[in-house]
Design a protein around this nucleic acid. Sequence first.
DNA 1: CGGCTGACTGCGA
DNA 2: TTCGCAGCCAGCC
Length: 118
Amino acid sequence: MSDPFDTARAARHRDFFRRVHAVVAQIPFGKVTTYGHIGKALGLRSSARMVGWALQAAVADDHLPCHRVVNRNGELSGKFHFGTPTRMRELLEAEAIDFKGEAVDMDKHLWIPPVEDI
DNA sequence: CGGCTGACTGCGA
DNA sequence: TTCGCAGCCAGCC
């Protein structure tokens, strides 16, 4: 479509994705962060739902550690987007991340991303 | 235009 | 502590 509005929208989406990508790529090995914190790092322009929306597309990106993003409770809310429901936890355990039942031990592994100024 | 859904969160009861 | 609801915004019907 050559519709200028459609182009603007697509550009906006790419920009948002780029910001999410920039933050997720900074998550240290063995650490996790939450959708809400990523939203904060982006200036809270968008809700946490939008972060998940961007990650859904990012999961296809192998070089992006989207398995290090969990909800505020440490639960693997996006595990069903990793091919198999156990894949996400396996990736996290491979980074020596401890679990409390079904959730990541946030007290040990929570990482707060710096505020991006992109 | 309206309503529902979704990898969410914060707050009040 | 657990539960429900409003806010959030893009996509789809």
